[in-house]
């Protein structure tokens, strides 16, 4: 199948006072049309940075290298105007943390109508009608009322849905959603998952869903990319990954899920400034050998369509 998005040796680093923060290192994977890839990993491993690197939304202190091919064109090589034509219209992005993602001093309606007009060249009246339709499709009871509200007057789940509505405006073929379920209670999480499912169903888009909620990832994504300290360490179909985890980090994560007894992984991630020369997970791994600590492991193929970054599978 033809690929929609192809990340080719993508790395992102930040200049900071204490040194170069290598937040994303040499990421390679592709997303085909209709495919939903879940990007999972613990906090600080670089998921959001990778997501924002794709649309070049990072502050100027970030330097991204590699190719980001979308519909055959390299997003990393585009000029400002070209990348702006992709943002919102071809690739929609839903920010982590809905509370901060909406402008606090503008009404929901203002922000929603603005997004629709940027994407579609609609008149104000058309945009307003369209906005009402989208809100209704995301099961808001009273769309007209929501349009008049300020972000602070909405609950977390409503804000998340409002953001989803804004992302849906341009009917984009690709969606990047960053932690759409973080910090929500069970009921609202259900609503949000439903709204995202609806988004995918209504627009037929592919996507990259960033989360550290494994349960959500398994429900929503057909492929998983597991990230650790800036690297992808395991990649493959969700079902296979869950039924037979390869990388010791994935096994550890699964053991820490509530239904598996919440055995918390020991230790913490290595610094992104001074990386160890060998495997980045070695210090927390029960199977680590001298070779693991000395040499950095490459991604290797294990069986059909599965990749893992671990010496155990040589």
């Amino acid at each position: 199948m033809e690929e929609l998005l192809k990340l080719d040796h993508v790395s992102t680093a930040f200049q900071s006072r204490s040194g170069l923060v290598k937040a994303v290192c040499d990421v390679n994977f592709t997303v085909s049309p209709g495919q939903i890839v879940g990007l999972v990993g613990e906090t600080g491993c670089g998921k959001s940075v990778l997501g924002q690197s794709i649309l070049r939304l990072l502050p100027p202190s970030a330097v991204t290298s590699g190719q980001i091919l979308f519909e055959g064109k390299d997003l990393a090589a585009m000029n400002e105007e070209e990348i702006r034509a992709v943002r919102g219209k071809r690739i929609a992005y839903i920010n982590q943390n809905p509370t901060e993602a909406l402008n606090p001093v503008l009404k929901i309606g203002t922000q929603l109508i603005e997004s629709l007009r940027v994407c579609g060249g609609l008149t104000k009246k058309e945009a307003k009608e369209h906005a009402l339709e989208i809100l209704a499709s995301l099961s808001f009871d009273d769309p007209a009322d929501i349009m008049k509200k300020y972000p602070m007057e909405l609950s977390g789940g409503m804000k998340q849905r409002a953001l989803t509505a804004m992302a849906m405006g341009g009917k984009p073929p690709f969606l990047i959603a960053d932690e759409p379920t973080k910090g929500l209670d069970a009921l609202i999480r259900g609503q949000v998952i439903q709204s995202l499912m609806k988004f995918v169903e209504l627009t037929g888009c592919s996507g990259l869903i960033i989360t550290h909620d494994l349960k959500f990832a398994s429900a929503m994504c057909d492929t998983l990319a597991l990230m650790y300290a800036g690297e992808i360490v395991e990649f493959g179909p969700t079902k296979k990954l869950f039924s037979a985890p390869k990388h010791p980090y994935l096994s550890g994560l699964m053991a820490s899920m509530p239904q598996n007894g919440m055995h918390v992984l020991k230790g913490s991630s290595c610094s992104l400034i001074d990386m160890p020369p060998g495997c980045r997970f070695a210090d927390r791994c029960d199977h680590a050998t001298e070779a693991c600590r000395a040499h950095h492991p490459e991604m290797r193929s294990v069986g059909e369509d599965r990749l893992v970054r671990c010496r155990l599978y040589d």
Binding site: L57, E100, E114, V118, G170
Partner: peptide
């Protein structure tokens, strides 16, 4: 965050 969102929408 709202500035990132605004830019991400193509403004």
């Amino acid at each position: 965050g709202y500035v990132v969102t605004a830019r991400a929408r193509g403004l």
